[in-house]
């Protein structure tokens, strides 16, 4: 059911649309594809779980009531497996408590009432994909470092000097300088400003060596 959009220049992350109403799931997937996203429709939780192992999803658009399964719980379980998955919820039974929960507790980006407002859906999904991409960059970046390097990096981008970092981590300033050199080498950056931009998910992450 995957249809790649011709416009998307870099291969964008996939959007998963999950609803137990098959027609609606397909319709939304097609709508998203028309708007330039790569989208795939799913009708049950098992298929989504399986697909998550095979490819990268940036965003999940999910119904809250999936037959007997709770959409919130399922989305959260996916999030624990893929931390960079953006969540957008939709429902035919909107309540205020759900709306608040969707955003606060379950980390959803938006909570859409059916009948779906198309513009809102599209903007939520594109926002979700952006967020997801940023998250992924940061994750890729930090995956390069050793544990010590990550600690030094975190303090560096918060504006601490080498000396302060050395005091905090109880290591010598010399060692900090070594770690710093390794970080710069691994990220192929020059200067603190670029490191900070990287820590915010901006700029292109280095290709893994």
């Amino acid at each position: 059911m995957t249809i790649q959009s011709p416009h998307a220049a870099p291969p964008p992350a996939m959007v998963a649309v999950l609803d137990d109403d098959e027609d609606l799931a397909c319709t939304i997937a097609r709508l998203l594809i028309r708007h330039g996203f790569a989208a795939q429709a799913f009708f049950d939780t098992a298929t989504v779980s399986a697909a998550l192992d095979r490819q990268v999803f940036g965003c999940l658009v999910s119904d809250i009531q999936l037959g007997t399964t709770d959409g919130f719980a399922f989305a959260e379980s996916l999030r624990s497996r893929v931390p960079s998955l953006a969540l957008v919820f939709m429902t035919a039974w909107p309540t205020t408590t759900h709306a608040v929960d969707a955003v606060r507790r379950h980390g959803g980006l938006d909570y859409l009432e059916k009948p779906i407002d198309t513009d809102r859906l599209v903007s939520a999904v594109s926002e979700g994909l952006n967020w997801s991409e940023r998250e992924r960059r940061i994750l890729t970046l930090t995956a390069l470092f050793t544990r010590r390097e990550r600690e030094v990096f975190d303090l560096l981008v918060r504006g601490h000097s080498n000396k302060e970092i050395a005091e905090r981590l109880a290591i010598s300033a010399r060692t900090v300088e070594d770690h710093r050199a390794a970080i710069v080498a691994k990220t192929q950056t020059n200067g603190l400003a670029q490191l900070i931009a990287l820590s915010r998910g901006e700029g292109t992450p280095p290709l893994p060596r």
Binding site: T27, L31, W93, P115, T118
Partner: peptide, 17 residues
């Protein structure tokens, strides 16, 4: 209302398309 809103979602999107 809720039963209607489900198929109506599909209908509205497809009609727009």
């Amino acid at each position: 209302i809720h039963e209607i809103s489900q198929p109506l979602s599909t209908l509205a999107i497809e009609a727009g398309h």
